[in-house]
Amino acid sequence: MRLYDSIGPNPRVVRMAMAEKGINLPSVTIDITAGVNRSSDYITKVPAGGTPALELDDGRVISEITVIAEYLEELHPAPAIIGTTPEERAETRKWVRIIDLGYCEVMANGFRATEGRRMFESRFPLMSKSGGDELKAIAAKKLQWLDGLMTGDFICGNRFTLADILLFCFVDFGAQVGQPLPDGLVWLPAWHQRMAARPAAAA
């Protein structure tokens, strides 16, 4: 297998998941700033053009970060980042979906329409800049909602999961593109410190 890697929060989620599991794979870096993911051989492997992607030994290609993480968990069950029981896996998948749809997608689309507009406007349709600003505000509201709801060390209580990896990578990215954590949060800043202290956070 080999990983098609790039800059950005999506590939970092997979790299961090791999690091938590002690998985090492050869990788190929795709220059998304130059649009390589939207042309050449890559687009034939990954029609949606996103990164990362995992190419299997038989030539099949798996894309989408949560799908890749699920596949790696099936190959390497321990340490579990999704869960060891049906109930644990269901809880993790619930929070991954809530975070992905409610925060990650909204925050990322807000970035693409504003600070990232020059890079993305020739590649696919974008919201207006004012719409992007509204998406940023919605993403901040989702973080405030999450902050008021959480009580344990991690999103799934005291169990570290893919949901934590996903949120951490996108919160870190947001801080780099004009979307820092909102003021007045309590749980998220402490959680972020715990996450940043994990060796896998360097992935």
Rank of each mutant, 00 (worst) to 15 (best):
R2Y: 08
I7L: 13
N10S: 05
R12T: 14
R15A: 11
A17F: 00
A19P: 14
G35Q: 03
A48S: 15
G49Q: 01
G49H: 02
G49T: 08
G50A: 07
T51L: 06
A53C: 07
A53M: 06
L54G: 13
E55Y: 03
I62N: 09
S63C: 14
I65C: 15
E70N: 05
Y71V: 12
E74F: 07
E74K: 06
H76G: 14
G83R: 01
R89Y: 09
I98C: 06
I99R: 01
I99M: 09
I99D: 10
L101H: 04
L101W: 05
C104N: 14
E105L: 11
V106D: 06
E115V: 09
R117W: 02
M119A: 10
E121C: 00
R123S: 07
F124C: 00
F124L: 00
M127I: 00
S130Y: 04
G131Q: 13
D133Q: 10
E134Q: 15
A139M: 07
L143Q: 12
L143M: 14
L143G: 10
Q144M: 12
Q144Y: 00
W145K: 05
W145L: 11
L146H: 01
L149D: 13
M150D: 12
D153I: 01
R159F: 00
I165H: 04
I165G: 11
F168Q: 01
F170K: 05
F170G: 06
V171K: 00
G174H: 07
A175L: 09
Q176K: 15
Q176V: 09
Q179Y: 02
Q179C: 15
P180H: 11
L181P: 10
G184E: 10
L185S: 08
V186R: 07
W187G: 10
W187Q: 03
A190W: 01
A196D: 03
A197L: 03
R198T: 11
A203I: 06
